[in-house]
């Protein structure tokens, strides 16, 4: 029952990201910290989806593609939510300088990065699935998404 509930939440998140529910269609986050909370919620659905995909017998590479697509779509949608488009331009300039791509690392870049770390076989793709669901937990726990609100 608990898994079914979690799976439904994950499925709704996937549909929202995949089919581009517009900001006007939902309660859109207004600030960057709200946008980060929204993003964390989207990618937190990936582990439950991955378990479902494993049960369906979907190969690791295909699951990694799906997980990466969800994360990447959520990344772009989050930037779409941002009210200050100068900040979006700054993020794109940062990603261009760091990855050579204004929208962040591609699937191929992540595969190569994991191979460079010495991973082989399905481990290359499992790492992509794990990292796709990974938020900056240490920072979120330390500061929250509203650090100024939680400072002493």
């Amino acid at each position: 029952m608990r898994f079914a509930s979690r799976f439904m939440v994950a499925l709704l998140a996937l549909l929202a990201v995949s089919f581009g529910v517009s900001a006007a269609d939902m309660s859109a986050p207004q600030t960057n910290s709200q946008i980060r909370d929204w993003y964390n919620e989207q990618v937190s659905a990936i582990p439950a989806l991955n378990q479902h995909w494993i049960a369906e017998g979907i190969p690791a590479e295909q699951r990694a593609h799906r997980a990466h697509d969800i994360r990447h779509a959520a990344r772009l949608k989050a930037r779409d939510f941002m009210p200050d488009k100068r900040e979006v331009a700054d993020l794109q300039a940062r990603d261009q300088a760091k990855y050579g791509n204004p929208d962040g690392p591609t699937f191929g870049m992540l595969v190569q990065k994991n191979r460079d770390k010495g991973l082989v076989g399905d481990a290359v793709y499992d790492e992509i699935i794990v990292s796709a669901a990974c938020t900056d937990r240490a920072t979120n726990e330390k500061y929250g998404s509203k650090p100024a609100d939680k400072s002493p």
Binding site: R36, E87, D136
Partner: peptide, 10 residues
């Protein structure tokens, strides 16, 4: 510094 937002703080 600009970070890997939204996965990291902006």
């Amino acid at each position: 510094r600009i970070n890997d937002f939204p996965a990291e703080p902006m």
